[in-house]
Each structure stands twice: as structure tokens, then as C-alpha cells.
Design a protein around this nucleic acid. Structure first.
Ligand SMILES: [Mn+2]
Ligand SMILES: [Mn+2]
Ligand SMILES: [Zn+2]
Ligand SMILES: [Zn+2]
Lengths: 141, 141
DNA sequence: AATAAAATTGTAATCATTACAAAATAGTAT
DNA sequence: ATACTATTTTGTAATGATTACAATTTTATT
């Protein structure tokens, strides 16, 4: 899903989140950058524009967004939680060289899920690790 | 892959791990139980049999196993790392009721990985969250 | 404007993980 | 077998990310 053209204030309201300045800016950062940042990255990137910003607010806000279902945590590396404002089912690829996390369009519909009969699937997550196209080509030079 | 009938001592040696008593017991626990435990569970389950066991040793040992590629970390929940001695590609399902983590046989070969041309995939991970068969049936009563 | 409710902030507390050095164990040479 | 060396384990202290909490600020309501 492409959130880049939504009205963020309205989107937050529609999802039962009062759009304070900090919440707007944090969600806007996720939507604009699509870089699956962690808490610290969000804080560091915003604190210059919002000098009074507290890291606690970033934690609180992401927790709220998670509860309201408008962000999802991306778990690829141990001891690193990244966040994604795109909550539709899609895959991720993390490059071991440049550390970047790419989105991967996915069609899981025809996947054989042998052994999951009578299981209720509420969430599906898939991710890959390896070397991205850019780093692969750069290394080949 | 089924590790239940291997000679654990030999398996560790083959993978460049000296089979100390603690390492044997920790790996044996993973192989025998297949429950994808976290550090604390492993420690709690073994400390009665090995009263001198230190949690640091559990951390050290799992770190070594990871480096040697004979365990993989399972990341499903935020702030919880579980470990799996089965390092072949397979999926997992975590039940939100009983918290159990199930193995899911997977065939990712025919999955459409649009957008990954020229990417080198070294690891593939997939997991689901929801309600397991047992809890689903129990709830239906 | 006064009051109440909600959100933000800064600091302190917590807790999992890591660093580190001492003790114990295993391996090797004499 | 003994002395010596290397490796592993252990317990404690340090680290660092996250959470708890109360004070302050902001927003909403009367
Ligand atoms: Mn994404
Ligand atoms: Mn498994
Ligand atoms: Zn890269
Ligand atoms: Zn269950």
C-alpha cells in the first residue's frame, strides 16, 4: 500500500490517534522515508527539527501506533526492532553490506502451508538476508 | 532436518565446537525438545541438572553455536529471541493463546520474489502468528 | 478565564545482555 | 605423574535499551 499521498492528520484520526505535533512528525517520517528505522534513528532524525523531543515520546508514540495497528515491527536482526508504516503483507530484504532494508512485493496465496490446517493465521511475515543489487554490482567492479 | 538421532558429540566436533559438558547439554536440550526456547528457558531447564551452570555460559554457548551455524535465532516477538537447532529453511507459527512455536514445512522454491533480481539471498525466514489448532478446537467447545 | 484531561518530557528504575577477570577444567610437554 | 599452557566456565560488575513515573506543558471543555 502506498501511503505517500495520504493526509496524515486524517489518517491518524481515522485510526483513533489524536494527531499531536510529535505523532504527526513521527508518522510522517515513517511514511516519507520508508527506511524501516529503529527508535533511535527516528529520534535522531527528528530531534533537530523538534529540539524538545524526548526519546520517551518516540517510544510511547510507536507503542500507540502498534496498538492501533498503523505500524508493524520489523524483526530481522537480533536486538533490533525497526518500524514500518506499511502494515500490508509484504516481505523485506536486509543487505548485510549496506544494512538497508528493502520492501519485497509478495504473493503468499499459493504458498504451500502444509501442516497449518485448522490453524488461524492472523499475521504472515517473511524476510530475506543477503547482499542487495547495488552492493552486489559494486563488489563486482 | 531431523537431528533427533545424531551423535551430538560428533555433530559438535564436525562443526568445530569442542563438546564440553555444558555445550553438550545445551545442544541436547535444543535437539530433544524442539520447543524453540529462549535463553532463560534453557537456563531454567538445565540448572537443576547442572547446579553450577551460569547464565553467562548459556549466552556464550548460544553465541558460539550461532557463529558456527548450528543454531538459528527465531525472531517472532519483539524483545524475545528463541533458538532452533534446525538450521534448514522452514517456517514457524506462534500461537497467541498458548505461546507455543510450531515448525511449518515450507517450499519457498515457487514463491514469486519479484524485485529480487540480482539480489543474493543467503537466508530466508518466514513466520506466522495466530491461533493454533489445539487452542482453536479448545475454544470452539 | 478556570478547570479538567491528555500528551510530553526528564529522570530514575528495571532488566536483559555483555565485559571482564578469577577459578576451574582440559590438554600438552617434560 | 607433574608442571605448564590453553580453554572453558563462572560470578560479578558494567552497559545500554526500554519502561515507570511524576512533573510540566499542551489541549480541550466548562
Ligand atoms: Mn516494509
Ligand atoms: Mn523450527
Ligand atoms: Zn547493500
Ligand atoms: Zn495454541
Amino acid at each position: 500500500m502506498d501511503l505517500s499521498n495520504i493526509n496524515i492528520e486524517q489518517y491518524l484520526r481515522n485510526n483513533d490517534v489524536k494527531p499531536s505535533y510529535q505523532r504527526l512528525k513521527i508518522f510522517e517520517y515513517l511514511v516519507k522515508h520508508k527506511n524501516h528505522p529503529n527508535v533511535d534513528t527516528i529520534y535522531q532524525e527528528l530531534v533537530s527539527a523538534i529540539p524538545t523531543l524526548s526519546k520517551t515520546t518516540v517510544y510511547n508514540t510507536l507503542k500507540l501506533f502498534l496498538e492501533k495497528g498503523i505500524v508493524q515491527p520489523i524483526l530481522i536482526e537480533e536486538n533490533e526492532i525497526r518500524y514500518d508504516a506499511d502494515v500490508t503483507v509484504h516481505g523485506h530484504f536486509k543487505c548485510e553490506i549496506c544494512q538497508e532494508v528493502y520492501d519485497i512485493p509478495l504473493d503468499l496465496s499459493d504458498m504451500k502451508t502444509e501442516g497449518l490446517e485448522k490453524f488461524i493465521i492472523k499475521e504472515s511475515h517473511i524476510y530475506f538476508k543477503g547482499i542487495c543489487k547495488r552492493c552486489n554490482i559494486a563488489n563486482a567492479q
